[in-house]
Design a protein around this nucleic acid. Structure first.
Lengths: 256, 256
DNA sequence: GGGCGGCATTGACATGTATCAATGACCCTC
DNA sequence: GAGGGTCATTGATACATGTCAATGCCGCCC
């Protein structure tokens, strides 16, 4: 049990936004938190319900969802190791949170968390910064989703994974040929997340693979070979122009 | 000058998220803030630059943008009366902010704002709640953008305007026939915001108009006649089914 | 007043993507 | 090992949307 607490603290320390916490506050946190486990597809927080804890992800991946009027759910974000969730000073969650994979979270009783917050002024900037970062991340998603073409969205998604999940080894692994990304959700969920359909995801992914930008090792393991080309694909379909140009050159070579 | 301060306070009090502030803090705010004016398309905050103030919108509309690698700008959100912007305890903005229309903002020097924050503990929940609300709003945008069909995105956009800009009379006006929404940005910007092109915006808007869901009084003045149908269009294209059904019935009537 | 430029709209066309249907791979259970 | 389920993939087709081009409207400046 003592071992588990230490592990918990370790995971917390690793999370960037809260890394500015002072040692004495860590001790307090260590006493407060409880580790909870969830299985894939289990619901952690129901939308519109009062939640009595603030959570921090220790392992696994969670998805935030909004349930639409017709019953379908729209994914609005993913949570990974080190991410906090739950509304401080308000208990009502706007979005429900479900485990995408088997998950361990660290739960802080909300009342105690808030009390700690008001008591220690040095904690406040950290929490606010955390909120601001979360906001920026949500806006990153916005940019990806505003991409007209699906290939662009997928490229943006992969790049976002790289930038956000850096250092989380069960998701991102550097290799000599490139970077391997583990997609923590199914094609269907990914399609949903990017505002499209599984079929389109499949096609776009294979299109990128055909161009040599990525390798599909397994359906959920993507190897990024050419990060620059991927960035081009995300920002614009400038890559298309390059591909067409290359094809033209090739035809020119083979023709005579 | 004294008059202007009173007006400023009035506008601030009207803003929902900060409405929980105590009177004594208002006095402090009132002393601190400076009113600044911007003309349409003027830049208020440059991305990646250190900003020395926290802003609150008094009048007009601002757009938050991310400048992409290729020079184009992607709009990630709109700011209206009562919205705060600027990162507390950090100064570096991730996104640039530009005036979409002529704008008046209230600027708090960042250092003083932060000092005030640490001094008065009752302010903290308000600021955190504000951040959380902002986050939820960003995720609302996400849901709208994840809509596959453009009509759905526009419907979602109009509904978001209704829910967010309630009470801001120069944007939203209740009328006997419905609710009039003033679109504060050009078709091009709107298209950009919704991840599409001006032509598609135009077509979708007129499609909704043909169905009687909305009226286009002027290009930038939309009258929502049937809020329920709009919600259906946003959530799903169930409205399509209705339209097809109605057309079938009409054909059936005219045929014999 | 006339010319100019920006904006919204419309049409025709090409392209991308959703949709439907079918297949194969994998995992789980029996 | 057989059978049923889910998931990824692929193909064919219809539809929505991007793209290009042309028009008309309006405000601005000379």
């Amino acid at each position: 049990m003592e071992e588990h607490r230490k592990e918990t603290r370790l995971s917390l320390v690793k999370s960037t936004p809260f890394s500015q916490l002072r040692p004495e506050t860590w001790d307090a946190l260590e006493v407060m938190c409880r580790v909870k486990s969830y299985r894939a597809n289990q619901t952690v927080v129901h939308a519109q319900e009062r939640s009595y804890f603030i959570g921090c992800v220790l392992s696994g991946v969670l998805r935030m969802e909004k349930t639409l009027a017709d019953g379908r759910a729209q994914i609005v974000g993913l949570l990974v190791q080190g991410d906090f969730f739950g509304r401080v000073f308000d208990g009502i969650a706007e979005f429900s949170i479900e485990a995408a994979t088997d998950t361990e979270i660290c739960a802080f009783p909300r009342a105690e968390f808030e009390a700690l917050l008001t008591q220690s002024p040095d904690l406040e900037p950290a929490v606010l910064l955390n909120a601001a970062n979360e906001l920026d991340r949500a806006r990153e998603w916005l940019i990806i989703l505003s991409n007209q073409k699906i290939v662009g969205r997928i490229a943006g998604f992969l790049l976002l994974m790289c930038s956000r999940f850096r250092g989380i080894d069960h998701i991102l692994q550097p290799r000599p040929e490139g970077v391997e990304v583990k997609i923590p959700i199914s094609r269907g969920d990914l399609a949903h997340l990017l505002g499209t359909r599984p079929e389109s995801i499949s096609r776009s992914l294979h299109s990128l693979s055909d161009r040599g930008v990525i390798d599909i090792l397994e359906p959920d393991r993507i190897l990024i070979r050419d990060m620059k080309a991927l960035a081009l694909a995300a920002d614009e379909d400038e890559i298309e122009a390059i591909a067409i140009l290359q094809k033209l050159l090739k035809n020119h070579r083979t023709e005579p």
